[in-house]
């Protein structure tokens, strides 16, 4: 059974006053991760197919075609994992 660890290489907290997190997808799974996310999230804006401004369950985030996503004001890792599970699996 697939888990988010199949897709996520690592999660980094951003440096700064903002409490954002950057999710970096595994290189070999990034295209699949992006496709899965785009199927489920609502696209609010996109630029040249390389940056997507998305929302999912009242959470806004940006997804980059390089295989990275930035989630704003995530309170803790459990909430992030739940979101990623629903978006990726």
């Amino acid at each position: 059974m697939a888990t988010i660890d199949d897709y996520v290489a690592r999660v980094e907290g951003t440096c700064g006053a903002e409490k954002d997190v950057i999710v970096i997808f595994k290189y070999e799974k990034k295209d699949e991760a992006i496709a899965n996310i785009l199927k489920k999230a609502t696209i609010k804006n996109k630029i040249a197919g390389i940056i997507f401004e998305l929302s999912f369950q009242d959470q806004s985030f940006r997804l980059y075609s390089s295989g990275k996503a930035i989630f704003r004001s995530i309170k803790n890792r459990e909430i992030l994992n739940k979101l990623l599970s629903e978006l990726l699996l």
């Binding site: 951003t14 440096c15 700064g16 940006r62 390089s66 930035i70």
Partner: peptide, 28 residues
């Protein structure tokens, strides 16, 4: 845009830059 959005956007094009406090929070 947040500085991290800017840095990730440039990252898509292979341009690296730092975002955040740059280890100098008091100056920020």
């Amino acid at each position: 845009l947040s500085s991290h959005d800017v840095a990730l956007f440039f990252d898509n094009y292979g341009v690296m830059m730092r975002s955040g406090y740059h280890c100098a929070q008091p100056l920020h």
